[in-house]
Design a protein around this nucleic acid. Structure first.
Lengths: 224, 224
DNA sequence: TTAAATTTGTTAAAAAATTATCAGTAAAAA
DNA sequence: TTTTTACTGATAATTTTTTAACAAATTTAA
C-alpha cells in the first residue's frame, strides 16, 4: 500500500515535525488550519508546507485549508506509525535503559520485545516489564521471535562483533546509537542514526561561531 | 579568532563525522590520506570532501593529500572543541542521567558543572560526581556560577516554565532533548535539538517505505 | 445571489548543494 | 635530473531544494 517513491530526505525529515505540531493543534481543539498559519507556528514557509504535503496527495481544500485531524492521521499513516515492528534493544547501559524507559514505542510503530546485555550484573533486572537477557541467548531468542529492528546502544568496542551477529540473524533495520558506522559495513540495511557526540559537537560549533571571541587557541593548533 | 561565516548547514553537520573518522585513522597510525581514500571510507564523494574542507582553508597538499593529525586538529579547532563551555543539566530522569553519564563533555568543548531536578527523590543523589540540586536553587546557582549552556532533558509539560527561567537567567545556548520547541519561542538563542521521537518515526518511515507490503492500514485512515 | 476574500495545488523561478572537470603543483619513479 | 603519477583547490556544470507566483476553487460576507 504505502510506498511513496522519490520522496526527498529533507521532506521525510520534516514529517515528524508536522506530525508533532498537528498533534498539539488537536490537543488544543483546533479543527482547521491553513498553510499560512502553520508556517507562523512552525517556521517553515507556507509554500514549503504545501509542497511537502503534496508529495503524498492533496489533503487540503482551496479556500479552507487543511482539516487537522485528517491531516494528522494521513501523516501518521505516511510515516507508517500504524505498524508494529518488533524491536529488541542491545545494550542495557545508561543510554539503552533511558531509551527503553523513555520512548513510547507503541505510538511510533514499534513494540519492544526483548532487551539484551552481556553484563551479568544487568542480566535478570527488569526494565519496562522486560527482563534483561544474556546476550548469549540472542540467537535462540531471535529464532523463536520474529525480530524486525535492533536498537543498538552498545559501546564502540563491542559494536562490530555484535553487529555481525545481528546481521547473521537476518536483522536489517537498526536504530543506531553507537559510534560504529553500520551503513558503511553493511550495504543492504536500513539505519537511522542518533549520534549524540556529533550533535554536541555541532552545538559547540554554533556557540563558538556566534561568540567570536579572541582566544588562545593557538596552543591547540600547535599539537600537530 | 574563529568565525567562519556563510558555512552551510550541510557542511557543519558533516564536520563531526570527519572528526570521528580522522580520529579512527589516527588510532590506526595512519599519517596521510587522500580525499579519494576518505571517500571510500566515509561514503561521501571525494569532490565533496575537498569542497567541505576548503571552506575553512587549504589543509591539503597537491600530490600528497592530507596529513591526518594536522587535519584532525584543524577540524577540532573549527568545531570549537578547544573550549570549555560550562553546562548545567536540567532534568535528572532516565534520559538526563544517561546523557550525564554517557557523554565525554570535556572532549567536546564542555564541562558539566551542575545537575538540577525538582523531584525530591532525585535531589541529593550523585551522578558523575555531581550532586543533584533542587531546581529551586537554580537562580542562586547561576548567579554564583557562570553558565553557558543548558542541557534540557525535562518532560514536555514542565518545559515552558523552566525554559522561561533559564532564559531569564541569561542562558542562550541549549542542547534540547525535550519535545518543546525552544527556537520558536525565543529568537535570540542557539539550539541543537535531539528529537528521539522524530528519529524513531523516520526509522519507521524508512522501514515501511522499503517493505511495501499490502497492509490492512485502511482501518487507520478511517479514523478521521 | 453575487462579489470579495481565502487558500490550495501546480508550475515556474531562484537558490543552494553536490558532483564533475581540470590546471597546477608536489611527490615518487625512472 | 627528468618524467610520470597522484592529488589538491578552484571553477563550472548539474542536480536538488526552496521560494515565488498564480489560476482554479471554496468559503465568507454583503
Amino acid at each position: 500500500m504505502h510506498k511513496y517513491e522519490n520522496i526527498s530526505q529533507p521532506v521525510i525529515k520534516r514529517l515528524p515535525r508536522y506530525y508533532r505540531f498537528l498533534g498539539e493543534l488537536l490537543d488544543k481543539g483546533v479543527t482547521r488550519i491553513s498553510s499560512r498559519e502553520l508556517s507562523d507556528k512552525m517556521g517553515f514557509t507556507a509554500s514549503q508546507i504545501r509542497q511537502d504535503l503534496n508529495c503524498f496527495g492533496g489533503f487540503g481544500q482551496q479556500g479552507y485549508g487543511y482539516a487537522v485531524q485528517s491531516l494528522y492521521n494521513e501523516i501518521g499513516h505516511i510515516l507508517g506509525l500504524d505498524h508494529c515492528y518488533k524491536a529488541i534493544l542491545i545494550g542495557a547501559g545508561n543510554l539503552g535503559k533511558a531509551v527503553a524507559v523513555h520512548m513510547s514505542f507503541e505510538k511510533r510503530g514499534f513494540k519492544l520485545i526483548g532487551i539484551f546485555d552481556n553484563d551479568p550484573a544487568k542480566v535478570g533486572t527488569v526494565i519496562r516489564n522486560i527482563t534483561v537477557t544474556d546476550l548469549d541467548k540472542l540467537e535462540e531468542f531471535c529464532k523463536e521471535n520474529k525480530t524486525d529492528v535492533a536498537i543498538f546502544t552498545v559501546p564502540k568496542a563491542a559494536a562490530p562483533s555484535i553487529a555481525d551477529r545481528l546481521y547473521q540473524l537476518g536483522i536489517r533495520n537498526y536504530w543506531n546509537f553507537s559510534h560504529y558506522d553500520l551503513s558503511i559495513n553493511y550495504d543492504d540495511i536500513i539505519v537511522e542514526n542518533v549520534h549524540l557526540n556529533d550533535s554536541l559537537m555541532i552545538l559547540c560549533y554554533k556557540i563558538s561561531d556566534a561568540c567570536d571571541e579572541p582566544e588562545d587557541a593557538q596552543e591547540f593548533r600547535k599539537a600537530d
